[in-house]
């Protein structure tokens, strides 16, 4: 396994089948790199998907990407190279072939962030945002999922407690209690983490959402979103969980700044406004 965007060193060894010794003459070894287009949670997979690189050379096709020479006097027949993983997670296959070899050999490598799990279902939040590009967009590390759940419970129960307190204060037990709707949780991380290219083009990612520690919660004018009036309370509630941070993100045209993301007149009541929550206090 290799982490997205990281490099790992691999070796390919050429040996004579008869005597198990390295070749006495120089031999050309070719390394190629393939990627399963739809792996790693990228349902939109296509042939333009980045494969990563070999020893600093970007591999643009499934053909041989990098060539090495081994064998000859004093050689142990070993070729050492790095696999440079791309930012997007997925299953890659490194294949080595050599001149006059009777076989080739391959190694499958998962590029992934370890430890991500599907967010457990709950009555206190609903899942949104899955689409044809990424149908599995709700993965977090276990600790972050626990914090999300606790936040959702606190948001719901504190609102309910507050409403009941108000009803008691005004002795209006006949009033209809309106429970807050479940939080609408949007993108967390993909099943193996890594770059979350929201538009399915390998290039326009969420900047973060890579390691299962942040999640977006809808906070626009849609029904069920966190309402504007609750932003400050939500932010402070979130911070009560070991320094978790809730930021408001929105789309504001350049030139209409500084944006507040909470104004109805600066264009921030847009469909993209959401709470970007750093569940464990880190934004990655």
């Amino acid at each position: 396994m290799t982490e997205p965007g990281k490099s790992q060193t691999y070796t390919a060894t050429v040996l004579n089948r008869n005597d198990n010794q390295p070749p006495k003459q120089p031999v050309t070894v070719k390394i190629s790199l393939k990627v399963d287009p739809t792996s790693g949670g990228h349902d939109h997979g296509d042939s333009s998907r980045p494969r990563g690189g070999i020893d600093g050379t970007k591999c643009e096709s499934d053909e041989s990407c990098k060539t090495f020479i081994t064998g000859g006097s004093g050689s142990n027949g070993v070729v050492t190279f790095t696999f440079d993983a791309p930012e997007a997670s997925g299953t890659h296959t490194i294949t080595a072939t050599c001149d006059r070899c009777s076989n080739s050999d391959s190694k499958e490598v998962d590029v992934k962030v370890a430890g991500l799990e599907s967010i457990p279902a709950s009555q206190f939040y609903t899942f949104i945002g899955d689409n044809n590009n990424h149908s599995a967009n709700h993965y977090l590390v276990s600790e972050a999922a626990t914090v999300l759940w606790r936040m959702a419970v606190s948001y719901h129960m504190e609102a309910k407690y507050q409403q009941l307190k108000t009803l008691r204060k005004w002795r209006r037990s006949w009033a209809v209690y309106l429970p807050p709707l479940p939080l609408q949780v949007n993108d967390a991380s993909l099943i193996w983490g890594g770059r979350f290219d929201t538009k399915g083009n390998w290039a326009s990612p969420h900047g973060k959402h890579r390691r299962g520690v942040v999640i977006d919660v809808r906070a626009n004018s849609n029904t069920g979103a966190i309402p504007l009036a609750s932003f400050a309370n939500f932010k402070k509630m979130a911070a009560s969980y070991d320094g978790a941070v809730a930021q408001v993100h929105c789309t504001v045209a350049p030139g209409r700044e500084p944006p507040s993301c909470v104004s109805t007149i600066d264009g921030s009541q847009d469909s993209n406004r959401h709470m970007h929550i750093l569940l464990l206090g880190v934004d990655e």
Partner: peptide, 19 residues
């Protein structure tokens, strides 16, 4: 001439720290 008839693929992993 030494004829290469066997190709063994072995993997040794060394993690490189990203700077």
């Amino acid at each position: 001439m030494n004829t290469l008839t066997k190709f063994r693929w072995s993997i040794g992993i060394v993690t490189m720290l990203a700077s």
